[in-house]
Amino acid sequence: MAVLVSDYFIPAIFALVLFSLWFAGRDRVEREAHQRAVGISMTALGIANLAVQVINSVYFRPRPFVQYELDLLFYRPTDSSFPANPAALTFAIATGVWGGNRRVGAALYALAVLYGLSRVYAGVFYPSDILAGAAIGVVVALLVSKLFLLLEPLPTIVLRLARRLYLA
């Protein structure tokens, strides 16, 4: 459980999946769908992170271990509990990937849920922090996928340039 709840284990898996997805695909069409999903996920990750920082700066909720006596499985974070940044980021990525590959997206959703539950079990977040973080992540990723459609042909030009450089 200590590994699962760690700041690095599941985030590193998400990073590896995104990196692999960029190159994966049976043909060019499938690979391009994956690459768009990676682009959406990365953009959503940044915006969701920003949204959580903004909310944290105007609303501070103490961590559960401050209010209750708990056996912590984690170090004592000092920042606000609400909304949960890890949930916002993992759900943003899972939603972005879901648009390009349902199977990998579902696996990432499962990991995101597991990560959120492990943080509640470890005593560093309330369930409502995780739910709010997940909602922020999903909504931001859906908005970013709409934004990518509105910004066409820019995403296509970026992908074509990457293809021309043999990177996509």
Partner: peptide, 20 residues
């Protein structure tokens, strides 16, 4: 030991993203 708080020399979220 890898799970080190960012207040004690570990990486915060943005640092992690940069390193990744």
């Amino acid at each position: 030991e890898r799970n080190i708080p960012d207040t004690e020399g570990g990486l915060d979220g943005n640092g992690q993203a940069g390193v990744f």
